[in-house]
Design a binder for these strands. Structure first.
Lengths: 261, 261
DNA sequence: ACACATGGTTTGAATATCGAACCATGAAAT
DNA sequence: ATTTCATGGTTCGATATTCAAACCATGTGT
């Protein structure tokens, strides 16, 4: 692991709950030496990736990120494309729809839209990390993303969120296989009681999935018929997103989706 | 200059016109060795700061930037705060208002809003770099930002855009002094014929300006009376932005603005 | 088949990074 | 006022990473 990776990893310690971090705290979080961390932090700051509060001396994410994110979105509008489709689907179905993007071993929410059907809404927290083994989106990534993801998901014991969370690695692998042949991922109250989801992957190229789009509903609204409807809608939307992103569905995926549809 | 800075600088070569760059091209642009650049690029890619097109093998800005930008904006909503004020001011005056942020030696546009009064609009290009010596915003940064900016602005010869562009370093320094005592920056057709602007800085702390907010109008609508109106409006808006960003106006600035207002 | 450009990899030599120990400052506590 | 603790920040010799030149592999147009 090179210097650049180590430095950039510091940025991942900023979260919604800890938006600014001091030097010593960051050394604790990263497990590296204080002098090293300090050099990294100041160098990141000089480049606008961090800012330092002049009073508390704590560091926070910097405005260079805004500029580069803007530019990326202007020249390669992933976010806009996906958000449009998410909104469209949510409106069409009247349910909560959300999309997440994979980066490395991290799956993070990109956008969501709740049409607010019937008053019951599902909580969904943005800009945080999504656990792979307990969500439909995460399972979709394990099944259709880079093969290495599965191994990586098992290095740590699987956290339990509810009674339904899969914590046995063997069961998880079996579930991944099921999902692969079904062409969609599903999760029943595995991260939160009363919430069921289905998810499908989308592609930026024709190899591995780069993200997933999911529908989450109160468990009372999920049955065989509604699930079929949701999955079909997701398949269509994913195909549209994939096309707009300049990717294409892998042959085996296309086969499943079109035969079952 | 450390490794991190050199690697991060590669990101700055992506522009709206060159949104994806290959290895050799990047070597040329950065002036560094090919092996080095390749290591940097792959390491940036592994962290999601770049993505590589699977066909052309070119690199483009990655989605980690979206995630981090999102998080920054959620925990420290610079962009939202400024955009709100820009919109408000533009609506109030019916003129084009824009804001830019300083990062290092780079001034880049953050947002703009043209209320579209009278059909005449001013062209404004986002996500690019703003020249310091030829714009009101840039001059505001030279006058009220980090003192080192002025030196840095003079290392290269001053590019000429129109007949009115200041290209003589001595004249530039004199102009900076004028602006400092006036409390606002102005520019008359220095970057584009027929466009006049006024600009004032805003602050995230109480030392140096971190950005500028400006009004650009067709030269026919700029006279002593309208300029006074624009400057006054900018002062109020900057004070509001500065406060919302958690900063405060330096004593000497406050004195000028309140006495003249 | 050939030249040429691209992406990517290897090598010893050079250089920048690492990290233990150190300094400086400020806030509580005695 | 002095001590203590925690913080941010700096120094410097050992060492691990980066550098740059040469090389390989692949694809493309002639």
């Amino acid at each position: 692991m090179g210097t650049i990776t180590k430095a950039l990893n510091l940025l991942n310690h900023f979260t919604e709950l800890t938006p600014s971090i001091g030097l010593v705290e960051m050394t604790r979080l990263s497990g590296q030496d204080k002098a090293t961390v300090h050099r990294y932090l100041t160098e990141l700051e000089r480049n606008g990736f961090l800012e330092q509060d002049s009073k508390t001396r704590k560091y926070r994410l910097g405005s260079a990120l805004l500029r580069l994110s803007f530019l990326r979105e202007k020249t390669f509008p992933t976010s806009r494309i996906i958000a449009n489709r998410v909104n469209g689907l949510s409106e069409e179905l009247g349910e909560l729809v959300h999309a997440s993007l994979l980066q490395g071993n991290r799956l993070s929410p990109l956008c969501y839209r709740d049409a607010g059907s019937g008053g019951t809404r599902v909580y969904f927290d943005q800009a945080d990390m999504i656990p792979f083994h307990a969500t439909a989106s995460g399972m979709a990534m394990l099944a259709f993303g880079d093969k290495a993801l599965v191994k990586n998901a098992l290095v740590e014991p699987l956290a339990r969120f509810t009674e339904n969370t899969i914590t046995d690695p063997k069961l998880l692998l079996a579930r991944v296989e099921t999902i692969r042949s079904a062409g969609f991922a599903f999760s029943d109250q595995a991260v939160e009681v009363d919430v069921s989801s289905v998810a499908v992957p989308f592609y930026q190229d024709e190899n591995q999935a780069t993200g997933a789009i999911a529908i989450a509903v109160p468990v009372t609204r999920m049955n065989a018929a509604s699930q079929r409807k949701f999955v079909h809608a997701l398949w269509c939307t994913s195909e549209a997103i994939t096309k707009e992103l300049g990717g294409s569905l892998p042959a085996e995926i296309r086969k499943i989706w079109h035969n079952e549809g």
